[in-house]
Amino acid sequence: MSDSPLLELKGVSKNFGAVQALYKVDFKVHAGQVMALVGDNGAGKSTLIKGIAGIYPYDEGQVTFDGKDVSINSPRDCAELGIEIVYQDLALADNLDVVNNMFLGREKTQRFGVLDENGMEQAAKETLESLSVTTIRSVRQAVAGLSGGQRQAIAVAKAVMWNSKLVILDEPTAALGVAQTRQVLNLVRRLADRGLAVILITHNLHDIFEVADKVTVLRLGQNVGEYSPKTTTQQEIVHAITAGEMTHVPGMQEEA
């Protein structure tokens, strides 16, 4: 784990009209680290992520990525930095096979713009093998026939295939059973072990204590603390989520 964070947000805020969705949030994640982002509904998790994704750029605050100040104003900026986001609905095309989904929008071509199917199949297999995803029988199988955990694995593999440095996973285990949750958490761990930074948005405290190195708790748009699961109990985190101490009372004007 390196000393300086890969991604650091300093004092980012975001308003939607009168609603203060984020207020001076500090947040950081290191390479090789799984950072869990937790909070109740409406705590600002999604807004924070959408700021990183360039969907709703922050109103104020500083974003540093890989030691450089950056401004992310569109999803394209985000992808160019090497940040990939796996949304909850995964966005896979059921009728296409695993290879086609992993390369969708970034197909390899050979002469005359002809698709390089073999090259893509090879690269897809390598990526899946490097992530130890062994449950998929054939990469030429339509995604429709895969289980929830397998689909999640494909979506993650798709995200890491492009030399990404930071992968953001939005509730990857929300719809999964016990065995599949374990597979996905193992996959999350392997991403960090490969040196990627991972932000894991989750509602499930069990997931956090299973894989996360650090936990950032948001409450009503503010960062109410960063914890380390090794030295924290579940109670403390639950307390922070529901009653974490805030520096600023929402709706009140700032003094001075």
């Binding site: 966005a91 095309a93 296409l96 086609n100 969708l104 970034r106 071509t109 002809v114 698709l115």
Partner: peptide
């Protein structure tokens, strides 16, 4: 079957949202 355009046609038919997010 062999061009990007064709692949995108199938993707748009299968899941337009996935196609849009893939930059198509």
């Amino acid at each position: 079957t062999r061009t990007r355009f064709g692949r995108y046609v199938y993707a748009v038919g299968g899941n337009p949202e996935a196609a849009r997010r893939a930059g198509i």
